[in-house]
Design a protein around this nucleic acid. Structure first.
Ligand code: ZN
Ligand code: ZN
Ligand code: ZN
Ligand code: ZN
Lengths: 163, 163
DNA sequence: GAAAAATTTGAAATACTATAACATTTTCAG
DNA sequence: CTGAAAATGTTATAGTATTTCAAATTTTTC
């Protein structure tokens, strides 16, 4: 298992980006999918930090770079990246974040710090198991799980809390 | 504990509505909050079924009844109802559903059938516990949990599945 | 009960998020 | 090369939510 940096701790983030791009190239090759320049650029923009980015934020940055971009440009790229498990959509924020465990099957659980905005994606088998069990008990067939925890990360808890 | 009807089974739904209104009156009294006519009407509209309703659906129905209503009218009422734990927002649907356990503290877990659209709100202590434990392990302070399961309810699994 | 304060509602505009529809270009297999 | 498939460009529009300021209503205080 690859150890990943904690989003809210200072770290060599360029390593995160490089890893994400490597993973993406790998996965797209496996899937016979094309990581076109736009798709790759959107992925890079999403990975510029561990904070979820809105589609229109991505759009603004693409436009600033002189790219001919309209909303569908971004949404298509994001759809593609989601489909191949490279980014996740955070429903409670209407925003997108890079997947921390691409390739591995996982049901994401997101710890969202509403102070610093960073998101940590956990894979918590015990939680997934409990969710599955609860759904089973109702004879409910689970297709997708949205699990987003909003709160305060350790780093922000320690800080003076300016607001 | 009060037993509630299962959303996707035929039941005397008027009882659900009456219960919800009774609960609302009770809770608002306890909170020294005013269940004004608009707020009550919005709650009734939300409770017209166990399917989440979009804010603009509520708006359309209010308008059809001749009420002078604009988007803020509805969003204000929904905010109020959420604040007092009478309705929940389903982030993955941008829609609102009546709370099945008003008054009792609970972290909702929603089983959303994407075939019939009905939502069952579970209180699953084992899941809540697992979520809390996973967050604790990361020293993350949990404020809000969004847990939405999309899938197929027992009734729709049994049916021929027309689509 | 009247005046002041607080809460709620009305109304218009606007911001933000996402998709539809169709034309054009690029890629790739045969 | 050529035709089919995939990806992108472009314009318009749909859907969701908030900002702002004014007016009305309810509650509190005197
Ligand atoms: Zn990083
Ligand atoms: Zn933080
Ligand atoms: Zn019912
Ligand atoms: Zn169903």
């Amino acid at each position: 298992m690859v150890t990943r940096a904690l989003p809210y701790r200072p770290h060599n983030h360029q390593a995160c980006v490089n890893q994400a791009l490597d993973d993406a190239r790998h996965i797209c090759q496996q899937h016979n999918a094309r990581l076109t320049p736009t798709r790759q650029r959107v992925l890079e923009l999403i990975w510029q930090s561990h904070r979820p980015l809105g589609a229109y934020d991505v759009l603004a940055q693409l436009a600033a770079e002189g790219q001919n971009a309209a909303p569908p440009t971004v949404y298509r790229a994001l759809d593609f990246l989601q489909q191949h498990g490279l980014v996740h959509r955070i429903a409670s924020l209407n925003a997108f974040v890079g997947c921390a465990h691409p390739g591995k099957p996982h049901t994401g659980m997101f710890l969202i710090c509403h102070q610093c905005g960073n998101v940590l994606e956990l894979s918590a088998p015990a939680v997934s198991e409990a969710v599955r069990a609860a759904a089973d008990r109702e004879s409910f067939r689970t297709d997708e799980v949205t699990l987003e925890i909003s709160g305060v990360c350790p780093r922000c808890q320690a800080e003076p809390a300016d607001d």
